[in-house]
């Protein structure tokens, strides 16, 4: 019980329930199951992306290229679909995922083999990916009339009372939960974030694990690229512009420490849901949507302050120094 009260997930969940309760007082329909399921559906992609980002942040890296990766993978399948409407949709989903995986692996290789800081690599690939979309599509949009019906219906298809989009999110959440808590690779990611030097001594290949984490975030981005095009029925350069920071915001609110090693799947989901609920609650209680940005900004700052309180003492900073950790065992 004491652990439960201390856990961040508990308080975040309480906060979310309080918001739902508060909004329901003003707008009775808000807490209806169908509405909450709707909110979950709208937040599905953010949840998937935030989980991908979580894995990267756990290893003390960051992936700023996720949104651009999403847009590029989405554009590729949108173009294929526009050109060959008969092309099987599940295969498109696979292509988008593999494309995202390849782009993520490219980030990962640069971080692993060339030792360039992740923030620099992904800042660079972010602009490269966006530019590539423009080249591929010749500056054009792919809009609703060009996409095949099967593609558009993919995320909307109703299965056991929920759209497929929600089911995808649920499946991925479960996969992540098993991966992070039940597999050695998942546990290694935590170990690296907490103490890279000790991880090297424990026989973990730190660089390779970072590579894997980038592959995962890339895979999630690519998969969401497919979902995004299907859901919002558009492929363009501007897709998900600036979304990379929203993804990181969801992680931070969910209690992922930017210093690495701290964070859970449940926390990340709650962080994403928190942003999703705020977004859909504002119009309901008659607050102009223009408030949304400032509110999520304040939520991030508040979350960081809370994170820092729970974090360990400042002595930790010594370990954070540069590459001493990575080559610790060998120099």
């Amino acid at each position: 019980m004491k652990n439960l009260l201390k856990s961040r997930e508990f308080w975040l969940a309480t906060g979310i329930i309080a918001i739902i309760f508060g909004v329901t007082l003003r707008a009775p329909g808000f807490a209806r199951f169908s509405n909450l399921a709707d909110i979950f559906n709208n937040t599905s992609m953010l949840i998937i992306l935030a989980l991908g980002q979580m894995v990267v942040i756990l290893t003390r890296s960051i992936d700023l290229s996720m949104a651009a990766n999403l847009a590029l993978s989405g554009m590729i399948v949108a173009l294929i679909n526009a050109a060959y409407p008969q092309f099987p949709i599940p295969l498109l989903m696979l292509i988008a995922s593999l494309c995202g995986l390849a782009l993520g692996a490219f980030n990962g290789i640069l971080v692993w083999k060339l030792n360039i800081p992740a923030i620099v690599v992904t800042l660079g690939t972010l602009t490269i990916f966006r530019g590539t979309i423009f080249l591929l599509a010749g500056g054009q949009w792919v809009n609703a009339s060009e996409l095949s019906d099967g593609f558009i219906q993919m995320t909307r298809y109703n299965f056991l009372g929920m759209p497929l989009l929600s089911w995808f999110a649920i499946l991925i959440v479960m996969a992540f939960f098993l991966f992070m808590t039940r597999t050695p690779t998942g546990r290694n990611l935590y170990a690296i974030g907490v103490n890279p030097t000790a991880s090297v001594y424990a026989g973990i290949n730190v660089g390779k694990a970072k590579f894997i984490s980038f592959c995962i975030s890339g895979l999630m981005s690519g998969f969401c690229g497919f979902l995004w095009v299907s859901r919002y029925v558009i492929g363009s350069v501007e897709v998900a512009n600036g979304y990379e920071l929203t993804i990181i915001a969801a992680c931070v609110i969910g209690g992922i420490s930017i210093a690495g090693g701290v964070g859970t799947v449940v926390g990340t989901i709650l962080g994403a849901l928190f942003l999703g609920i705020i977004n859909s609650a504002l119009p309901v209680i008659n607050i102009s949507p223009f408030w949304q940005m400032a509110i999520s900004g304040s939520a991030i700052i508040l979350a960081v302050i809370l994170n820092a309180r729970g974090a360990r003492s400042k002595g930790r900073l010594i370990l954070k120094q540069k590459s001493t950790a990575e080559n610790g065992g060998k120099t």
Binding site: A249, F290, W291, M293, A294, I295, G297, I300, V304, A308
Partner: peptide, 24 residues
């Protein structure tokens, strides 16, 4: 408060621009 600047300023980025959205 000893917070990591990268996340703090991601937060204030939204906050500052958000205030302009509220005003304008």
């Amino acid at each position: 408060l000893g917070l990591p600047s990268i996340v703090v300023t991601i937060g204030t980025m939204s906050l500052f621009r958000g205030i302009s959205f509220i005003i304008l």
